[in-house]
């Protein structure tokens, strides 16, 4: 057959194998990703007087609020570290995860209008969310580092673990992977049945308390401590605090567990997402 030898650039089939994930096409659309990130920043601060300065004011206020509520009012143990540094350490990383999760979890529903009219690799949208939030995280980290340096000079209650500093990008990468994985998984599961969307806001809040953002696991009984450590977020946040402040628990084994957890979750989520993106327009 002559037809068999023909080279087709694209074959649209009714049935696709679950492992067909076109990473090359995502790379081809990299400009779109960057433009979407740009849109996220430019569009939000249009018609404001302070403009991009809000990027700094917002996280600063959030941190101050948390430090005030938990440090001054609730007075929960901070493992001996200054409350503001302790809380900011947790919240900075946590906010990145929560923002990624919240924004990617409605990828399909929020973008149905665009998805219904034009094709591009759908994964571009959640990836652009990850990158946008990464920039916000960088700003927040900057604020955190300034405050951290101040306390580092002013008091001797902070004991940074310089030899582990290289782990910080890994921790951020793990947070991104977990946020993306969980987010697009939820997004894929909610195209047809929306029930899960009602639980997200509540679930994220609950997860925050279960991830030692406010309550250090050192204050907990051993039994609960182990349960909390099964949540990969816990070891990431504890490690982050340990590296910057010197308090908290640090265990490479649990961190490795988190990395495996993230890889499996992400792989599963991408497979499901990839399957759903083919026909979600019919059910969304």
């Amino acid at each position: 057959m002559n037809n068999r030898n023909e080279q087709w650039d694209l074959i649209i089939k009714s049935k696709n194998n679950w492992y067909q994930i076109n990473l090359a096409s995502i790379w081809r659309y990299r400009d779109l990703l960057l433009l979407l990130v740009r849109r996220d920043f430019v569009a939000v601060y249009k018609q404001t007087i302070l403009g991009p300065i809000w990027l700094f004011i917002q996280p600063l206020f959030t941190s101050l609020t948390f430090a005030f509520i938990f440090g001054k009012i609730a007075r929960i143990s901070t493992d001996g570290a200054p409350p503001i540094v302790f809380y900011m350490a947790g919240i900075t990383l946590w906010t990145y995860f929560a923002d990624c999760l919240n924004k990617t979890s409605n990828t399909f529903i929020a973008n149905a209008g665009v998805f219904g009219k034009v094709y591009f690799p759908r994964l571009i949208i959640p990836l652009s969310v990850l990158v946008s939030n990464l920039i916000k995280l960088a700003i927040q980290l900057l604020i955190f580092v300034i405050i951290w340096l101040y306390y580092f000079n002013a008091s001797n209650s902070i004991h940074p673990q310089w030899s582990y500093m290289w782990l910080i990008p890994v921790l951020i990468f793990m947070m991104a992977g977990l946020g993306l994985g969980l987010g697009i998984l939820i997004s894929s599961l909610t195209t047809k049945y929306r029930d899960l969307t009602f639980l997200i806001g509540f679930g994220v809040q609950l997860l925050m308390y279960a991830s030692s953002v406010v309550l250090p696991i050192s204050t907990m009984p051993d039994k609960i401590k182990t349960i909390m450590l099964y949540n990969p977020l816990t070891s990431i946040i504890e490690s982050f605090k340990f590296i910057f402040i010197g308090s908290g628990t640090f265990d490479l084994v649990w961190l490795l567990y988190g990395l495996c957890f993230m890889t499996i979750l992400l792989a599963l989520a991408i497979i499901v997402f990839n399957k759903v993106e083919k026909s979600f327009m019919d059910t969304v």
Partner: peptide, 19 residues
């Protein structure tokens, strides 16, 4: 919609050359 890959077909397939 099927040609532009917005939604997948239930049966059959389409072969395309070029972008």
């Amino acid at each position: 919609k099927i040609l532009s890959r917005v939604t997948a077909p239930t049966t059959g397939d389409i072969k395309v050359k070029g972008r």
